[in-house]
Computed example of a mutant assay.
Amino acid sequence: MENSSHPSYFNLTMFVNIGSYRYPAFVFCLLLFAMIVSANLVIILVISQQRTLHEPMYFFIVCLSINSLYGSAGFFPRFLMDLLSDAHLISRPACYTQIYVIYTYALYELTILSVMAYDRYIAVCHPLHYHSKMTSKTVFKLAAFAWICPSFLMTTIMYLSIRLPLCSNKIPKVFCANWSVVKLSCVSTVINNIVGLLVATTTVFLPLAYVLYTYLRILLVCRRCSAEFKAKVFQTCLPHTISFMIYSITGFCDIAISRYNLEDLNPFVVVILSLEFVVIPPVLNPFVYGLKLPEIRRHILKMLPWKTKSHLCF
Rank of each mutant, 00 (worst) to 15 (best):
P56G: 05
V199N: 10
M303G: 15
S226L: 07
S226F: 10
V204M: 11
I300F: 04
R78I: 02
V16S: 15
S274V: 01
P267V: 07
C29M: 13
Q235T: 15
T13S: 14
L89C: 11
L110E: 03
R259D: 02
M154Q: 15
L301A: 11
A177C: 08
E263M: 10
R217D: 05
T111L: 08
L83Y: 00
I255A: 13
K141W: 11
Y159G: 12
F10L: 04
F268Y: 12
S188V: 01
F287L: 13
M14F: 03
M245A: 15
S132R: 13
F244M: 14
L113V: 01
A177Y: 02
M158D: 15
M35L: 14
F145E: 10
F145D: 11
L197Y: 15
R22H: 14
S180G: 13
G19K: 14
L220E: 14
T138K: 02
C253E: 05
P207M: 12
F60N: 06
R298G: 14
N40W: 11
L164R: 08
I112K: 00
L304F: 15
I157D: 07
L301G: 00
Y70C: 03
N169Y: 01
Q98G: 05
A73F: 08
L128T: 12
Y105P: 05
I171A: 00
L113A: 02
Y121W: 08
L83N: 05
L153N: 15
H88T: 02
